[in-house]
C-alpha cells in the first residue's frame, strides 16, 4: 500500500491561514491503514484545527468527510453537493488523491495534508517499510524476492558495495544490507547461481514519467466505443 505521513501541524495551519471555511477530506484506503489520512485522523486533525483556532480567537469552520478512495472518480462525485461552501479543501490522501480531487473540482483550491512517502508494508503496528519503487520491470525472480532497487540505497543490481557492514547498510546502520539479505536467501534456496549472473543495466525507458497503463481488456472496448 501507499504509506504517507501527515504534514506538520504548523505547515497545515500555515496553508489554511487565509481561509475561514475548510473541508478536510479523508481517504479510506491506503492512508487510512497507515494512520495518516483516514476517518480517525481526519477527526483528530479537524479537532486540533478547531482548538487551535479557538485559542487564537479566530473563526474557522472545519468540516470533515472521508470517502472510500480519492483515486476513483465515483467516490469524489458526492462531494459536489457541498464543496462550494468552502474556501479551501484539505485533502488527506496521497499525492495521487490530492491531484485527482483537484482535477475533479478544478475551481477549488485543494491543499495537501500529507506527505506521500512510499509503497510499503506494515512491519509492526505503527511501523512501515518501503518495499517497491514501481520501477516497472520486476526483477524479484532474480533476487530471491528481495528488491535491490528498493532496499539498496544505491539500487545496485550485481551485489553489495564496499559499504556493507556486518549485514547492515553503510548509509544507515539501522537498515539491512539488501545484498546480504539476498545472498542469505539465495543460499538457503540453493540458487546462488542467480547472484553470479551479471545483471545488465536497468531499462529506465519503461518507467518514463508520467506513466499510463490501459488494461488489455479495455483496449478493445475503447475501439468498440469509437466504432459506435
Amino acid at each position: 500500500m501507499i504509506v504517507a505521513e501527515r504534514k506538520s501541524f504548523e505547515q497545515i495551519v500555515d496553508m489554511l491561514s487565509p481561509f475561514e471555511r475548510v473541508l478536510v477530506v479523508g481517504c479510506g484506503t491506503c492512508v487510512a491503514v497507515c494512520m495518516a489520512g483516514g476517518e480517525k485522523e481526519v477527526e483528530l486533525l479537524a479537532a486540533e484545527l478547531r482548538m487551535h483556532a479557538q485559542k487564537q480567537g479566530k473563526t474557522l469552520l472545519v468540516d470533515e468527510v472521508t470517502v472510500t478512495r480519492q483515486c476513483d472518480k465515483e467516490y469524489l462525485e458526492p462531494l459536489a453537493k457541498y464543496i462550494d461552501q468552502y474556501d479551501a479543501v484539505l485533502s488527506m490522501a496521497c499525492g495521487a488523491g490530492v491531484q485527482f480531487l483537484a482535477e475533479r473540482y478544478d475551481d477549488k483550491l485543494i491543499l495537501p495534508g500529507l506527505d506521500t512517502r512510499f509503497i510499503g508494508v506494515a512491519q509492526a503496528p505503527g511501523q512501515w517499510e518501503q518495499r517497491c519503487v514501481a520501477c516497472a520491470e520486476c526483477i524479484l525472480d532474480q533476487t530471491g524476492g528481495i528488491c535491490p532497487m528498493t532496499r539498496c540505497a544505491k539500487n545496485l543490481l550485481n551485489g553489495p558495495c564496499g559499504g556493507t557492514n556486518h549485514g547492515k547498510c553503510e548509509v544507515d546502520a539501522g537498515k539491512d544490507c539488501a545484498w546480504t539479505l539476498i545472498y542469505r536467501k539465495l543460499e538457503k534456496l540453493g540458487r546462488l547461481d542467480l547472484m553470479r549472473k551479471i545483471q545488465p543495466p536497468k531499462d529506465y525507458s519503461v518507467a518514463t514519467k508520467p506513466a499510463r497503463y490501459v488494461h488489455p481488456a479495455f483496449h478493445e472496448s475503447q475501439q468498440t466505443s469509437a466504432a459506435e
Binding site: 544505491k154 545496485l156 550485481n158 558495495c161 553503510e170 551479471i198 545483471q199 545488465p200 543495466p201
Partner: peptide, 27 residues
C-alpha cells in the same frame, strides 16, 4: 567504482544517480 552514497558527503541533499553499478561500468 560504485561510489559512496551522497549522504556521507557535503551535499547530502543531492540526487544520487547510480544508473549503472561498478560491474556494469566495467562492462
Amino acid at each position: 567504482l560504485t561510489g559512496d552514497y551522497v549522504s556521507v558527503g557535503d551535499h547530502p541533499q543531492a540526487k544520487p544517480v547510480f544508473d549503472l553499478d561498478s560491474v556494469q561500468l566495467l562492462r
